[in-house]
Structure formats: C-alpha cells, structure tokens
C-alpha cells in the first residue's frame, strides 16, 4: 500500500464496473463525480476479504461528497459516501 492518491478537494469519479463479487461501492453513485472531503486511513478491501483471499489489499478510504442534483437531477442536499481508493479515479477537466 502506497501513499494516499487523493487529497481533500480533489474531484474523483467512481467506477462504473459492477464486479462479480461483494463490493462496498453503492450503485447510486457509480460513474458519478464527487469531491474528496478527507482521507480516513487505510483499511482492508472488502472485495478481497469477502472472498477470504489470503492477501487482502489494504487501501486508503476516502469520504467523498456528491451533490444531490448530480445523483437525482434535483435536490439541494449532499450525500457523503466512504469509498476505497480502487473505487475511484481522478475526474477529468471536463467533469465538474
């Protein structure tokens, strides 16, 4: 496990892939762009632990904030979700 890839304020996009096993990336935020609120330390990846793999990956988890308007097309609230690093990629310049 290396350094945390993202810092507070970074824009990130969640993966759209639906893996063929347990994961903690909820469907309602897949493919969405959010902003990193803060890193939360490193934790074993549930996708690996649920399959009882001998070597579970350990990754930084981030609180990532999404705007209701992006998720549902309406609403003024925010939803913050805790996500493992491999669920995220940097959002491009066009992703705002």
């Amino acid at each position: 496990m290396g350094e945390a890839r993202f810092v507070a304020g970074d824009k990130v996009r969640t993966h759209t892939v639906d893996p063929p096993h347990h994961t903690r990336l909820p469907r309602y935020i897949r493919g969405q762009v959010g902003e990193v609120v803060e890193p939360e330390g490193a934790w074993p990846l549930p996708d690996d632990r649920a399959r009882d793999l001998p070597e579970s990956r350990v990754e930084t988890v981030y609180a990532v904030r999404f705007a209701a308007r992006d998720l549902w097309g309406e609403g003024t609230h925010s939803v913050t979700v805790d996500l493992w690093e491999s669920y995220l990629e940097p959002a491009g310049e066009d992703d705002t």
């Binding site: 096993h21 347990h22 549930p46 632990r49 649920a50 399959r51 009882d52």
Partner: peptide
C-alpha cells in the same frame, strides 16, 4: 469461522 465481509456477502 468467517469475517464481517463474508457475512455481509452472504446476506447479499
């Protein structure tokens, strides 16, 4: 016997 993530996976 099993871990928390296996338990969650089983529920799912």
């Amino acid at each position: 016997v099993f871990n928390l993530d296996e338990m969650r996976d089983a529920i799912e």
